[in-house]
Design a protein around this nucleic acid. Structure first.
Lengths: 143, 143
DNA sequence: ATTGACTCTTTAGCCGACTATAGGGTTTAC
DNA sequence: GTAAACCCTATAGTCGGCTAAAGAGTCAAT
């Protein structure tokens, strides 16, 4: 089978183009995330260019903390009556909310830490060079 | 040993107060994250109240995406000359930067998604109720 | 026709952070 | 004094997301 002229990829081509390993692509298939268009007599997987887009979608979603289970759920809706958009949106809103909480918490944590650092720097040199002081202050106060 | 009057906890007490399971506490000890003050004749672990603060510190750091290895590194500095504050600060800045990147990406992703959702909603009812269309648009365009 | 690069399946291993289980000792309350 | 509730160690299992290895078939170029 010609894998360049008529835009059909073998798994190695797809791996190179998507920067995802062959093993990972087979793993994704085992989860139902991607499906080859054809499985000819030689038993090789052949993919359409759309699969490349699909893999990039998976990678993008993953980079945004979507689990493969989340992605499975989104893709599973292809076979139901519901539009995946509402689920994607719901999941996305959850992720964004979680991220926002985290970043707020991280900012607060950092501010606390800076306070402690300043407190430590006002301790006489001998004492402030003792790491147990910073450690102790951090451990006790950051809770 | 009296575990209430003189402020010494057994592992179960510590577990209840910190909301961390007994098994997890023993696991933390195996990583050197916490150390009991005493290991009396009965071989039971006994903890000072400071350990509770320490566990809460670990949990807080974890909730901010610090790995136990990160926390190990921070705590390890107790035994070296360097103040843990600078490492905590470095790790924290890395986490915050990562989170900020993620949230920016998530916001952009959400905006893209909303655009696609709107695009789908302008497709005639029969077509827009076909989930493969939203799926397809998402898969192709969100990369 | 052979070599090397590719492909296939199946199975096993890895990492982090736990959780569970087995088998046994200790403490505490009644 | 006995039974429940606690503690101990050591080992194994779980989950997610892969990666690696074994053993075998296929394809393309020379």
């Amino acid at each position: 089978m010609n894998t360049t002229a008529n835009q059909v990829f073998k798994i190695g081509d797809l791996a190179k183009r998507s920067q995802v390993s062959v093993g990972t692509l087979r793993y994704y298939e085992s989860l139902g995330l991607i499906v080859p268009i054809d499985r000819a007599a030689n038993n090789y997987r052949y993919y359409s260019p759309e699969t490349l887009q699909q893999v990039q979608f998976i990678k993008k979603a993953q980079s945004l903390n979507f689990s493969l289970a989340d992605i499975q759920n989104i893709l599973k809706l292809r076979s139901t009556g519901e539009s995946p958009c509402s689920l994607v949106d719901k999941l996305l809103n959850e992720k964004i909310e979680h991220l926002e909480q985290q970043i707020q918490s991280a900012i607060a944590f950092k501010e606390e830490l800076e306070t402690f650092r300043d407190r430590v720097s006002n301790i006489p040199p001998t004492a402030s060079s003792d790491p147990t002081i910073c450690q102790h202050i951090s451990a006790v106060s950051l809770t």
